[in-house]
Write a protein that binds this DNA or RNA. Structure first.
Lengths: 224, 224
DNA sequence: GGGGAAGTGTGTCATAAGTCACATAACTTT
DNA sequence: AAAGTTATGTGACTTATGACACACTTCCCC
């Protein structure tokens, strides 16, 4: 499979491009480049202009943010098939977090200028993108309000389920980082996890959470 | 001033169209219609397809939602110069609330089909709209997270400031509705308002709040 | 003008979650 | 292996806010 075809598949899996026709997708994929990163190499930093969209071909990219106290918090891991920077490539605003290669990686790169040129040539695609952005706005305002009003166990269960979808039942994350994710104190996170351990929903190890009973966890995430 | 020119002014005041050039704005305004509503007439209801954007020329439109218990909660008042339905016109999704004329009104109407046809003919405008939607997405995710994590006084002060911007220092709203706005219990809202009354920041009447000291209120809204 | 209905003011109580403080336990570095 | 560092576990306390209960007022309608 050609590099372009491979990129098209990744785009198609992302909600933002899922609606595009095969022909549109192919013409868009033809604009892509690839870029190699050594382990630990910095892809972009907070504040850099958002001049491209990236897809992971192989390897791993960590999205992290440097807290004011100098410590680093990992916000996300992007693995093969994951796409990031969709919004940045559209509006060119500066990055809000850092991205570093967690291992030697190869990325697909779609540059902002190329993408905008494409949209200008294909206004029908631009309109589809507009519709998708609108959906995202609606979805965000519904979810956010709902989400933040939920009690901590629900928010925590949701986050764990999301992480499980990416990494399987062994989630590699510290309780401190988990706390940042769900907007809660580390101690509160710990207490809730302990309670779930007693209920055999999960097991805890240093820096690791082993999800034992996803059924119960998703039930909690749905708020009963 | 022609109807179209008047509509162009309203569009220009809205963030979503502020970036458009005078020529683009004029061509867009030429697509508008007008519609008259009698007092109490229903413009659209929750679930209707979002097939147009509206601007208030004169009169008043109430955006309200029927709660499950049958009571009606007013979410917003739109007065002359206000624009609503910007997102609906772009993605055609169904309305999430009802709109009713609070008095005899005249509205500018920009139909979805006309607007989409315009965007297709003018891809540069479509790209500007895309950038604006992206900004909105970023703004939303920043604000939402921040906002919900703020303590009630801050959320309340922010909402009051926003209402003041629309209606001046005499805000006509019940404490119950205010509670819905900021996601808090009526009693909590009342207690906070009482405290502010003691500090001479505002005065309370049945169904009314008189803002006496916007300086202090905005200071609270900024979270000191 | 009498009788609701809606809006408001307040007290009491329960609870979720943050904060602080410290004990352990597990990895790293030298 | 010793020492330091990071992650985790847990208790005590505080605080904000929701929930309930009820009194009081104002408005509206018959």
């Amino acid at each position: 499979m050609s590099k372009q075809a491979e990129f098209a598949v990744i785009l198609k899996m992302n909600a933002m491009f899922a609606d595009l026709g095969a022909d549109e997708l192919q013409r868009l994929s033809n604009l892509c480049h690839t870029q190699h990163l050594a382990n630990g190499e910095v892809l972009f930093q907070k504040g850099d202009p958002g001049n491209a969209l990236f897809g992971v071909r192989r390897g791993q990219v960590r999205i992290e943010t440097g807290a004011s106290d100098g410590s680093r918090l990992t916000l996300n891991f992007m693995g093969p098939g994951d796409l990031f920077g969709e919004v940045a490539v559209l509006d060119g605003q500066s990055r809000t977090a850092d991205a570093t290669a967690g291992e030697a990686s190869e990325l697909f790169v779609l540059r902002r200028e190329d993408f905008l040129g494409f949209l200008e040539r294909e206004p029908k695609v631009a309109i589809k993108i507009i519709a998708l952005l609108c959906q995202r706005i609606r979805w965000q305002s519904e979810r956010m309000e709902e989400s933040m009003l939920q009690p901590l166990p629900v928010r925590l269960a949701r986050r764990l389920c999301a992480l499980a979808a990416d990494f399987g039942s062994e989630v590699h994350i510290s309780q401190e980082q988990l706390g940042v994710f769900v907007g809660a104190a580390r101690e509160s996170v710990n207490r809730q996890l302990q309670a779930w351990r007693k209920d055999a929903i999960l097991d805890l190890q240093r820096g690791r959470i082993l999800l034992r009973n996803m059924t119960k966890l998703t039930a909690i995430a749905r708020n009963e």
